[in-house]
């Protein structure tokens, strides 16, 4: 991603916000929307264009859970760890994902297919325990249901590869 052409994608965002005080978080959010994460080169580029030290940008970006510094897998799993999900067994779901894919919170599977991210409350507590995969919600999970969902995704990825 380290080529300048891609960084030019940021120009409209920077143009819109560089004079707006307090807009750093918004700029980082838009950067992540574009690249899927915050690439090092993009941070350097923002620093230069907005005249903000990279230390300040990293300080802000590492403070908030929304920001990522690595690309995510093809299937981005957000596992809800809210109170309702906890009470209804989200730790068993996390264990099932770990057993099935060999990844813990924040990790991406070796095949690059899955990234697991624990998140605080997704706000659909009545369906707890809940996870989203690429934005689609899966509710009332059980360990076996999760294994089923993951295996289905794995085999659909495999059949596409063939």
């Amino acid at each position: 991603m380290d080529n300048l052409n891609n960084l030019l994608l940021l120009d409209p965002v920077l143009e819109q916000y560089k004079e707006v005080p307090g807009s750093l978080i918004t700029v980082l959010q838009k950067t992540q929307d574009i690249f899927g994460y915050l690439p090092e080169s993009a941070i350097a580029y923002i620093s230069e264009k907005m005249n903000v030290p990279t230390s300040k940008i990293y300080g802000v970006a590492t403070f908030y859970t929304q920001f990522r510094f690595n690309p995510v897998g093809r299937y981005f799993i957000q596992l809800c760890q809210g109170t309702a999900c906890h009470v209804n067994g989200s730790q068993l779901i996390e264990k099932a994902i770990k057993d099935e894919l060999g990844i813990s919170d924040g990790e991406t599977s070796d095949d690059g297919l899955f990234t697991l991210k624990n998140v605080a409350c997704l706000g659909c507590c009545s369906l707890s325990p809940v996870m989203t995969i690429n934005g689609e919600t899966f509710g009332s999970l059980t360990p076996s249901k999760v294994r089923g969902i993951l295996n289905e995704l794995k085999s659909s990825a495999e059949s596409e590869a063939e």
Binding site: G82, T83, H86, A120, C121, G123, C125
Partner: peptide, 11 residues
Amino acid sequence: DEGDPGAFMDR
């Protein structure tokens, strides 16, 4: 900024 896990009134 309804961050309290298990709460969704504001949403």
